[in-house]
């Protein structure tokens, strides 16, 4: 399972999203973060949730830059959902892939020397839904959503 999903997502056309940011240089992380923030604001999220979404995007974009060198952050508003409007963030790369997905979701686990190892587990906590598909030699896809809260 999941493997076809990686291909499908990696090949998803840009026009299906409101925002697509190619991550290849470190500066692109800030761009992705900024775009996510703007889209979440437009969609009417609270400032707290805008910050959570921007932080999640920052984590995912940095992982792409660090571990896969390049990839894409794709974001879209989903206004027709039955539970109310939501924002979907997809991070996709054709990098080395992750051998053990459960292991990397453990808080504090990292293969990078200067880090806390809480990026992915943090994204999972900040967002409402979280799924990760990865295959060694093929790439990694993270799909995550946040619903707009009623005030």
């Amino acid at each position: 399972m999941g493997l076809d999903k990686i291909d499908t997502i990696l090949e998803s056309p840009a026009h299906e999203f409101d925002v697509v940011v190619r991550i290849a240089r470190e500066e692109d992380i800030a761009v992705a973060r900024q775009m996510a923030k703007q889209l979440a604001q437009e969609t009417g999220f609270s400032l707290a949730d805008v910050t959570k979404i921007a932080t999640a995007v920052s984590e995912l974009a940095r992982n792409i830059y660090r571990y896969a060198n390049q990839g894409r952050i794709m974001i879209r508003k989903k206004l027709e959902e039955k539970d109310g409007p939501c924002i979907e963030v997809i991070a996709a790369d054709r990098g080395p892939g992750i051998p053990d997905v459960d292991l990397v979701l453990t808080r504090g686990y990292t293969t990078y020397e200067r880090s806390l190892g809480i990026g992915l587990s943090g994204v999972k906590r900040l967002m409402d839904s979280f799924a990760i598909y990865s295959e060694v030699g093929k790439g990694t896809v993270v799909i995550t959503e946040k619903r707009r809260r009623k005030f």
């Binding site: 400032l47 707290a48 805008v50 910050t51 959570k52 932080t55 808080r107 806390l116 809480i118 587990s121 943090g122 906590r125 900040l126």
Partner: peptide, 13 residues
Amino acid sequence: QPPVALTLAQMGV
């Protein structure tokens, strides 16, 4: 900032 504090707390930083 308060939303930043909230986010850090939720992430467990």
